Amino acid sequence: ELVLALYDYQEKSPREVTMKKGDILTLLNSTNKDWWKVEVNDRQGFVPASYVKKLD
Rank of each mutant, 00 (worst) to 15 (best):
E1G: 13
E1I: 15
E1P: 13
E1F: 13
E1Y: 13
L2N: 06
L2S: 08
L2M: 11
L2T: 09
L2H: 10
L2Q: 10
V3H: 04
L4K: 08
L4F: 09
L4R: 09
L4M: 14
A5D: 01
A5T: 03
A5Y: 01
A5G: 03
A5F: 01
L6E: 04
L6M: 09
L6I: 10
Y7G: 05
Y7P: 00
Y7W: 10
Y7L: 10
Y7N: 08
Y7Q: 11
D8L: 02
D8N: 08
D8R: 03
Y9G: 01
Y9P: 00
Y9I: 02
Y9N: 01
Y9Q: 00
Y9A: 00
Q10T: 15
E11I: 06
E11M: 13
K12S: 11
K12V: 08
K12Q: 14
K12H: 09
S13V: 05
S13T: 12
S13N: 12
S13F: 07
S13R: 08
S13G: 13
P14W: 10
P14Q: 10
P14M: 09
P14K: 10
R15F: 12
R15M: 13
E16G: 13
E16Y: 06
E16L: 05
E16R: 05
E16S: 07
E16W: 04
E16T: 08
E16K: 04
V17H: 03
V17L: 15
V17T: 06
V17A: 05
V17P: 01
V17D: 01
T18L: 03
T18A: 07
T18G: 08
T18D: 03
T18N: 07
M19T: 03
M19H: 01
K20Y: 11
K20L: 08
K20P: 01
K20D: 04
K20V: 09
K21W: 03
K21N: 04
K21T: 06
G22I: 01
G22S: 03
G22H: 05
G22D: 05
G22P: 01
D23E: 13
I24N: 02
I24P: 02
L25A: 08
L25Q: 00
L25C: 11
T26I: 15
T26Y: 13
T26A: 12
L27E: 00
L27F: 03
L27V: 07
L28T: 05
L28F: 04
L28E: 01
L28N: 03
N29R: 07
N29A: 09
N29W: 08
S30T: 10
S30K: 08
S30F: 07
S30P: 06
S30Q: 10
S30E: 13
S30A: 13
T31K: 11
N32Q: 10
N32E: 10
N32K: 07
N32A: 09
N32R: 10
N32G: 10
K33C: 10
K33Y: 09
K33A: 13
K33M: 11
K33Q: 13
D34L: 14
D34A: 11
D34W: 15
D34V: 14
W35A: 02
W35D: 00
W35I: 02
W35P: 01
W35Y: 07
W36N: 01
W36R: 01
K37C: 13
K37D: 03
K37S: 07
V38I: 08
V38T: 00
E39C: 14
E39D: 07
E39S: 13
E39F: 09
V40R: 15
V40H: 15
V40C: 11
V40Y: 14
V40W: 08
V40Q: 15
V40N: 15
N41V: 11
N41W: 12
N41D: 14
N41I: 12
D42A: 11
R43M: 07
R43W: 05
R43V: 07
R43E: 05
R43H: 07
R43K: 11
R43Y: 04
R43C: 06
G45A: 03
G45W: 04
G45K: 02
G45D: 01
G45S: 02
F46S: 03
F46M: 08
F46G: 01
F46E: 04
V47W: 00
V47F: 00
V47Y: 00
V47G: 01
P48S: 02
P48Q: 02
P48D: 02
P48K: 04
A49I: 03
A49L: 02
A49Y: 03
A49V: 05
S50V: 09
S50I: 10
S50H: 12
S50D: 08
Y51T: 07
Y51H: 11
Y51N: 04
Y51G: 05
V52E: 01
K53F: 10
K53G: 09
K53N: 06
K54S: 08
K54N: 06
K54E: 06
L55A: 05
L55C: 12
D56H: 13
D56P: 14
D56M: 12
